[in-house]
Amino acid sequence: MKIDSINIIGREKVSQPIYRYVKPTDYYKDALGEVSPTEAAMINEVYTLEMKAGEYSSFYNTTSDVAGFVVEFSGKLVGFDISEINRAWDMLYRLSLPLGRSGVLMHTLSAINIMMYDIYSKYLGVPAYKIMGGATRKHIRAYASHLHPIDFKDLQDEAREYVSQGYKTMKMRFISGPSDINGIEKNIELVKAIREAVGYDIELAGDAWMSWNYNFALKMVKKLERYDIAWIEEPLMPDDFEAMKMLSWKTGIPISEGEHHYHIYDFKRLLDAGIRILQPDAVWTGGITPMKKITALAETYGAIVVPHTGNVYNLHVIGSEPESVTPVAEFLTKYREWMEQHMGGTPFPKNGYFTLSDKPGFGLEYKL
């Protein structure tokens, strides 16, 4: 069965509430103001792609820039057998070397790779995780991810709500970085408020979203160690591997990285820097093909993979790997919807667990 075409079949403007949290752009609030999640990721419109192969189709939502590159590359894929997933990925990666190796170009490879996985598993009549090696478990533990800085009472109420919904792990967002002279104290006050609400039987992680530098991060981890933090996510700029190495050696709090890293080479550098919680995303890092390689690489270092977001593609990867390597999935409780317009079948956790679907492919349906 051959690939016939890849086309843009829809576009829609999106907007997202502005949630407060620390950002690497905080030095420029006078020019940018408070940046929303969609603005930070340059997501102003969502484009829907359709890949066709005979009677089978796959639908995928992405940004306008990625959609343009996918269509640009699509002519080179016409006539490929839908099973030639790795061949197509390697060819396009090599073709795109002068253009990127990260960012939008890898997002483009992700889109194509995921759609090929989707159609091929539909053709075989099996869920996508079965052509990744089969499921290691039917249910995947989820952690609740939000807790943006707001009024302390509201923050505590939100944390208690996640406990009542069955979550044993949750992730908060820090509010301050080096641009704020009182930033360390402000961050600690948020952690204290959540710990007072849920106690210490609940795992609590914190996200700094690439916004700290080494000196600020070192002071923060020393203050945070008494609060039993499960991990600190992206405390440093994504290319500062040397600072990651120094920081990971100076704290007992695990440092996680990977949301803004690409393919296996970045993840080898992260592991060599002492990072033992990797957070790639199938829609960003290049697709399912590199995700499987990253999880294998992580296992050789004794690391775990906790993908960024609990999108259905990441869930199939998690569910196809040993629980010792991919133990938990993120669930963005408040703002995961902007990339899921008109998509039916998107998974949601119940009682703190996702359940893998038995539907062919990734189990998504495009609905106008």
Results as ranks from 00 to 15, higher is better:
6 I>P: 13
9 I>L: 06
10 G>R: 14
24 P>Q: 13
25 T>E: 15
27 Y>Q: 14
30 D>H: 14
30 D>M: 06
31 A>K: 15
33 G>T: 14
39 E>W: 01
41 A>H: 10
42 M>I: 09
44 N>A: 08
45 E>F: 10
47 Y>V: 12
47 Y>W: 15
47 Y>A: 11
50 E>S: 10
55 E>L: 05
58 S>V: 07
61 N>V: 00
62 T>S: 05
69 F>D: 02
70 V>P: 12
78 V>W: 10
79 G>L: 05
80 F>M: 08
82 I>D: 12
86 N>G: 04
88 A>G: 02
91 M>G: 00
93 Y>K: 06
93 Y>M: 06
100 G>W: 04
101 R>N: 07
101 R>I: 05
103 G>W: 07
105 L>G: 04
105 L>K: 00
110 S>P: 04
114 I>Q: 00
117 Y>M: 08
118 D>Q: 09
118 D>K: 09
120 Y>S: 08
125 G>M: 07
131 I>Q: 11
133 G>F: 12
137 R>A: 07
143 Y>S: 11
145 S>T: 12
150 I>M: 15
151 D>M: 05
151 D>E: 12
152 F>R: 15
160 R>C: 05
162 Y>K: 01
163 V>Q: 08
163 V>T: 12
166 G>L: 04
167 Y>W: 10
167 Y>L: 07
171 K>L: 08
173 R>S: 06
174 F>D: 05
174 F>N: 01
175 I>A: 14
180 D>A: 04
181 I>D: 13
183 G>C: 11
184 I>D: 00
184 I>T: 06
197 A>C: 06
197 A>M: 09
199 G>M: 12
200 Y>F: 14
200 Y>P: 01
202 I>V: 15
206 G>P: 00
206 G>S: 15
208 A>Y: 08
211 S>Q: 08
212 W>D: 01
213 N>P: 03
213 N>C: 02
215 N>S: 14
218 L>M: 11
219 K>M: 05
219 K>Q: 10
220 M>R: 00
224 L>N: 03
224 L>C: 01
227 Y>K: 10
238 P>G: 06
242 E>T: 11
244 M>F: 15
246 M>Q: 14
253 I>H: 07
254 P>Y: 05
257 E>S: 14
258 G>P: 00
259 E>N: 12
262 Y>M: 07
265 Y>L: 10
265 Y>P: 01
268 K>H: 08
269 R>H: 10
270 L>C: 11
272 D>G: 04
274 G>E: 07
275 I>Y: 02
277 I>S: 01
279 Q>V: 04
279 Q>S: 10
280 P>E: 06
280 P>N: 04
282 A>R: 09
284 W>V: 03
287 G>I: 00
287 G>F: 03
288 I>A: 02
288 I>E: 00
289 T>L: 02
290 P>M: 00
290 P>C: 02
297 L>C: 10
299 E>L: 01
300 T>L: 07
304 I>V: 15
305 V>L: 02
307 P>L: 03
309 T>M: 09
311 N>W: 03
313 Y>S: 08
314 N>T: 09
314 N>H: 09
315 L>P: 00
315 L>I: 10
317 V>A: 11
318 I>W: 04
321 E>D: 06
331 F>T: 09
333 T>K: 11
337 E>T: 09
339 M>N: 13
339 M>H: 06
342 H>D: 15
343 M>N: 02
345 G>N: 11
348 F>E: 15
350 K>H: 13
351 N>K: 14
353 Y>H: 13
354 F>R: 03
356 L>H: 09
357 S>W: 03
365 E>Y: 08
366 Y>L: 09
